[in-house]
Simulated scan of single mutants.
Amino acid sequence: MAREFHRTDRIADAMKRELAQLIQNEIRDPRVGMTNVNDVEVSRDLSHAKVYVTFVGEDDAKKIEDGVQVLNRAAGFLRSQLAGSIQMRAMPRLSFRYDETSVRGQQLSALIDKAVAADRKDLDEGEDGQQDDNQEKSQD
């Protein structure tokens, strides 16, 4: 059976696509830079929308915070532009938030890689010890 899509899901998807274009083409502030719109969550009553963004190549917390502030200040402008392209009775208020899932994913991936490397090192050391024991037994 096909999954039913709720109206909020369809609106969130349309807003995500439009916001990505609008931020890229209309926001000229250098603090925003290259911005990815990762997700949009629209409330059930369609009055609020949380927009989760990341900034390409930014690791500095201060620059990320500044970028989010710029987007939140431009939220009214972006909302009016969205209202022109998405036909709705009332456009949800926009609230921009930094999406930490990609950063957290990279950290977890690094931890996994470190653990795998440590296991390989331990396994290799164990095999070397067994080979030395086998060589000593064959010489006897």
Rank of each mutant, 00 (worst) to 15 (best):
residue 6 H to P: 01
residue 74 A to M: 07
residue 31 R to A: 13
residue 96 F to A: 03
residue 87 Q to D: 15
residue 14 A to W: 04
residue 97 R to I: 07
residue 52 Y to N: 03
residue 133 D to G: 03
residue 8 T to H: 06
residue 23 I to K: 02
residue 115 A to W: 00
residue 132 D to V: 13
residue 122 D to R: 11
residue 1 M to C: 08
residue 18 E to G: 09
residue 71 L to G: 08
residue 45 D to H: 02
residue 49 A to L: 03
residue 4 E to A: 09
residue 69 Q to W: 07
residue 127 E to P: 03
residue 64 I to Y: 04
residue 13 D to A: 10
residue 101 T to P: 02
residue 88 M to F: 12
residue 37 V to E: 06
residue 130 Q to H: 08
residue 62 K to F: 00
residue 6 H to F: 12
residue 58 E to H: 00
residue 139 Q to T: 02
residue 84 G to C: 10
residue 2 A to E: 11
residue 72 N to Q: 03
residue 108 L to T: 07
residue 63 K to Y: 02
residue 127 E to L: 14
residue 52 Y to I: 01
residue 36 N to M: 11
residue 114 K to G: 01
residue 89 R to A: 12
residue 43 S to V: 06
residue 104 R to L: 05
residue 104 R to E: 05
residue 113 D to Y: 06
residue 65 E to Q: 11
residue 105 G to D: 14
residue 9 D to K: 04
residue 115 A to R: 02
residue 75 A to Y: 05
residue 82 L to W: 07
residue 116 V to W: 00
residue 46 L to G: 05
residue 11 I to S: 03
residue 103 V to W: 06
residue 42 V to G: 02
residue 84 G to Y: 14
residue 5 F to I: 14
residue 94 L to Q: 10
residue 63 K to I: 00
residue 118 A to R: 12
residue 60 D to P: 00
residue 97 R to F: 13
residue 69 Q to E: 10
residue 47 S to H: 09
residue 97 R to T: 03
residue 81 Q to T: 11
residue 3 R to P: 04
residue 37 V to C: 05
residue 20 A to K: 09
residue 124 D to G: 00
residue 5 F to K: 14
residue 8 T to A: 10
residue 117 A to K: 09
residue 85 S to M: 15
residue 94 L to K: 05
residue 134 N to Y: 15
residue 82 L to P: 10
residue 24 Q to D: 08
residue 134 N to G: 12
residue 20 A to E: 12
residue 32 V to I: 15
residue 107 Q to D: 06
residue 45 D to T: 00
residue 36 N to T: 15
residue 125 E to N: 00
residue 80 S to G: 09
residue 88 M to R: 14
residue 115 A to Q: 00
residue 86 I to C: 12
residue 81 Q to L: 13
residue 75 A to Q: 07
residue 40 V to Y: 04
residue 35 T to G: 04
residue 7 R to N: 07
residue 22 L to N: 09
residue 69 Q to L: 08
residue 98 Y to D: 07
residue 78 L to C: 02
residue 77 F to S: 09
residue 129 G to L: 09
residue 53 V to R: 01
residue 106 Q to N: 13
residue 123 L to Y: 03
residue 2 A to T: 09
residue 42 V to Y: 01
residue 46 L to V: 04
residue 8 T to M: 07
residue 32 V to K: 13
